[in-house]
Design a protein around this nucleic acid. Structure first.
Lengths: 212, 212
DNA sequence: CGTAGACGACAGTATAACTATCCAAGGAGG
DNA sequence: CCTCCTTGGATAGTTATACTGTCGTCTACG
């Protein structure tokens, strides 16, 4: 199929496809002649994946590049997932004054959860620390790790559920795609659902409350 | 306190403070004379709030403006929360071909959850629909509402927990702040924890799996 | 009384993610 | 064979967001 057809099928404009090609997000097509390149279903699918990650998940193009690079990872599927997790994680903000302590708290939370398969240099350890640090800076509350316990339990549930539901017939990259889409889409869904649920549940407590 | 002091205390550069002032995110200080304006603790706090929402939650300046405007809402605290939810929700992407059906599904999910206090025109109804629509376009799977049920249950739990934990001594805007920070910070925390948990739990199923 | 710092207006910058233009050439229809 | 449309490839331009910098003036404070 030609580039124009690829564009029609996916709804992605031709210049954008060219851009993705340049950035290496989309593999080159089959170059029949220097003037005619052939794209196939694989390209349609990849483009769909890229669009859903960007439009729904807000994953930046840089992250998409890391993800594409991650698919080259050798080793077990577990290794592949670990590299992808780093690719998907935002780059941690520059560390402030309380980072070291926050990092210790983050590590403690992970240990407490029993997540002993998480690499010591996982990007998300720093991300967790950074968030904790900023939060601590805002609110002078005590706010110990106890506050986070329910979220840890929830995340654990969620992860078990999603890992268990992956389709075993797929190949390694297929599994990765399913995992990523699930992660990104359901993170968005969950955030939206949570806002909806708070709107509903705030009625019981605050439906009559006109405090000033 | 002078603007330079406000800057030092919060770590936000003076030009940025001026920018926030121009945009109306920060209330004007007390103008003692045309050349001397006095800022106080309230400004320090507000600046901290703005920074945490932007740096941790990635809330765009536009959203912050809507949030500031929301604090003017009359009515019950529940009404206030509802307006804030709309302010915090991303603007739904332009609707595609399957939006109407997706919106019906979204409404059904909300009804099924028993969230009957959610306004009919809540922005998040459209957001949920938009996400569902994009997801459906990617994967040709059946993927009925059953798939979403566990997330609904989780969001319900989460919302109950957070509403119940709000500090009753605060005034309406104080409650709003606490709710917003909780929502934004814990959305980020949960996303990070989930990636960590998936890294851990993928080991059990895929730790030896080198499939090709 | 001299000057550092504040105000306010406005212009400039950085980054991300596209989008547009151009050109030469190949290929499909007639 | 001729014509015209489309492609590939390179490069330049655009839009949006979120700041950041400069300038002229003026005044509170030492």
């Amino acid at each position: 199929m030609r580039i124009s057809e690829l564009s029609e099928q996916t709804g992605v404009p031709v210049p954008t496809i060219k851009y993705y090609l340049r950035e290496g997000l989309l593999p080159e097509g089959d170059k029949r002649t220097p003037r005619l390149t052939d794209y196939d279903e694989q390209h349609v699918r990849r483009l769909g994946l890229l669009r859903i990650l960007r439009d729904v998940g807000g994953v930046p193009v840089e992250g998409l590049k890391r993800l594409v690079a991650a698919t080259e990872t050798r080793g077990t599927v577990h290794d592949l997932f670990a590299v992808a997790a780093d690719a998907l994680a935002p780059t941690p903000p520059p560390s402030g004054p309380g980072r070291e302590q926050a990092r210790a708290v983050a590590d403690a939370i992970i240990a407490q959860a029993g997540w002993d398969r998480v690499r010591g240099d996982s990007v998300d350890r720093d991300n967790l620390a950074a968030t904790l640090e900023l939060r601590a800076g805002f609110d002078t509350h005590p706010r110990g790790p106890a506050e986070i316990a329910p979220y840890v339990a929830l995340a654990d549930q969620l992860a078990r559920h999603e890992i268990a539901n992956l389709d075993d017939r797929k190949d390694r990259v297929g599994l990765l795609e399913e995992m990523i889409v699930g992660q990104v889409v359901f993170a968005t869904v969950l955030t939206t659902l949570r806002r909806l649920a708070e709107e509903h549940h705030s009625h019981e407590r605050f439906g009559e409350d006109r405090r000033d």
